[in-house]
Amino acid sequence: MKKNWWKALAVVLLVFTVVAGMLSNVPRLAILNETIRNLYFHVPMWFGMILILTTSVVYSIKYLRNPTVKNDVIAFEAAKVGILFGVLGIVTGMEWAKFTWGEYWSNDPKQNASAIGLLIYFAYLVLRSSFNEQQQRARISAVYNIFAFAALIPLLFILPRLTDSLHPGNGGNPGFNTYDLDSSLRMVFYPAVIGWTLLGIWIVNVKSRLEILRQRLYETV
């Protein structure tokens, strides 16, 4: 029970996110209107994805240094949950964009870059499924995972900032800067990021333990 305090923390933070996210005061901005509350649900998907994919890369590097089944399983499960968060992020972003930018997909640099990033990670899943031999699969996908992560960071954080983007904080767009300082937004946004990320890590935790159990079962049978 003592080891699981962070799961309780995730539940508390998510409940707080939903309640405060809907009821708290938010800055009054034209076009955005109440959709600014999506900040508590869309943006944490991306923050969560980055943090969970970082976990995945760390375990991939650990696997290359110390090839155990556990390291491989955690790297793979974290990558899958990270991809899930990314897909949710891109879908929620499209829904939000339709009503504020006018189009589901307006070829915004950040939209395009995140789509490319996700495709790179889809290739990771395909690559992984194309090996039969466990050690070969684990080693090659660990190496690929490191390259995928190294490609994702410039795609999401550097390239969109070099051109004009509809996304706040990119190009000449002041975007969130005008209300980034708003403490009422931050007060819900940071707990939301931590809550959603912890939920993702919880899913990784359960899935990895199940997968390790399954592999151990195959060994003994």
């Binding site: 799961k7 998510l14 939903v18 309640v19 009821l23 939920l199 919880w202 899913i203 359960v206 159990l213």
Partner: peptide, 28 residues
């Protein structure tokens, strides 16, 4: 009402995850 609906969805998902977590613990 929206808050209650969102909380219901969240509660449902979390209970599901908790049950899954316990099943895995029992197997371990």
């Amino acid at each position: 009402v929206v808050v209650i609906v969102l909380l219901t969805v969240l509660t449902g998902l979390i209970i599901y995850l908790v049950v899954l977590d316990r099943k895995v613990s029992r197997l371990e």
